[in-house]
């Protein structure tokens, strides 16, 4: 295949056979409970230097509790997938977790400005869809997938994509390298203890991320019986054998919205924006993360049952979210 142009940036090594071998050796096919605390899950499955993907974001059914745990445990040198993200990229960068970043979209601010200018974080350029397509390729066991966007942009030049002559039509087509992250963090509405997980509502790439990643941590609003999973199998978004850890995390998307469960906490949302707009993430972490053993302790100390109950009451929509 003739290569017409190619991006010059570093990208996570493409190795579908290596990934198959990992799956063969590490993905447990038995129905074994993987229920554990957020602390244990992050301690066991998120390592310094990992490539990390999280689905959705800090405000929209994202794994906010798990992201706070990553900051609490001071992970370092993480290569982050910044697709359809929000302030979470800034929070992780500002907390010193991240050294490389694949950009689809993140919320900008002083934290990112300063980190990029000082060279503390290296940014590689993609788009949201190109990133989810890379995950799709990774989730299919393929080395790449073609896409009819992204060519011609300056992002292409700073990516791992290639423009080739399509052997079928003879026309130029962009190829995006597959992405198989080391670890995925995904927040869902319901899961059983084995990791059969249900996402209700839209999402970004939860299925692709779960299947493409070597290690998968699910946090769930509710742990449900497997009998309930078997009653309505069509609602299983992610099957157990892709999953390594299941964390029971009520309000695990706080301060965000979790469809069918609770509305977003506007003061909490604004405070997170402020942290990266003014580059004061350490102060944010000192308030919400580092002093506490886990999120439950933080909710008890800072947010309080009354405020959480109001967020539950504010979520009046149930259609599509409850089985």
């Amino acid at each position: 295949m003739r290569i017409l142009a190619e991006g010059a940036a570093e990208y996570l090594k493409v190795d579908p056979d290596g990934f198959r071998a990992w799956v063969r050796d590490h993905k447990d096919r038995t129905l074994t409970s993987k229920l554990m605390s957020a602390r244990d899950a992050v301690s066991r499955f998120v390592a310094d230097g990992d490539y990390l993907v999280f689905d959705c974001n800090y405000f929209q059914r994202g794994p906010s509790t798990l992201l706070r745990e990553v900051i609490r445990q001071k992970r370092r040198d993480i290569w982050l997938c910044g697709k359809f993200s929000y302030v979470d990229v800034g929070l992780l960068v500002g907390a010193g977790v991240v050294s490389k970043l694949d950009c689809g979209f993140f919320w900008p601010g002083a934290t990112l400005d300063n980190a990029a200018r000082d060279g503390r974080v290296e940014v590689f350029e993609y788009s949201n869809v190109v990133m989810t397509l890379r995950l799709q390729a990774g989730a299919m066991g393929l080395p790449f997938l073609p896409v009819r966007s992204f060519g011609g942009t300056d992002g292409f030049e700073r990516s791992g994509a290639k423009l080739v002559e399509d052997p079928f039509t003879g026309r130029p087509i962009t190829l995006a390298p597959a992405l198989n992250p080391d670890v995925a963090l995904i927040h869902v509405q319901q899961s059983d203890v084995y990791g059969n997980a249900r996402v209700f509502g839209t999402g970004i790439a939860h299925q692709e991320s779960a299947l493409a990643s070597k290690k998968v941590i699910i946090s769930a609003e509710e742990i449900i019986d497997t009998a309930e999973i078997r009653r309505d199998p069509g609602r299983t978004s992610i099957p157990y054998y892709a999953v390594d850890a299941v964390v029971h995390a009520p309000f695990g998307a706080w301060p965000g919205n979790c469809g069918g469960y609770y509305g977003s906490d506007t003061p909490g949302v604004i405070e997170a924006f402020g942290a990266i707009a003014r580059d004061v993430v350490p102060a944010y972490a000192d308030k919400y993360i580092t002093p506490f053993e886990d999120d439950q302790a933080m909710f008890n100390a800072i947010v309080g049952d009354e405020r959480l109950a109001k967020l539950r009451a504010a979520e009046t929509i149930s259609e599509g979210y409850r089985a």
Partner: peptide
Amino acid sequence: GEAARRFGGPGGADSIAAL
């Protein structure tokens, strides 16, 4: 240089504009 400002990236716009 010092005047450089980093923004959030294309997000979904690249696909919208291309497709």
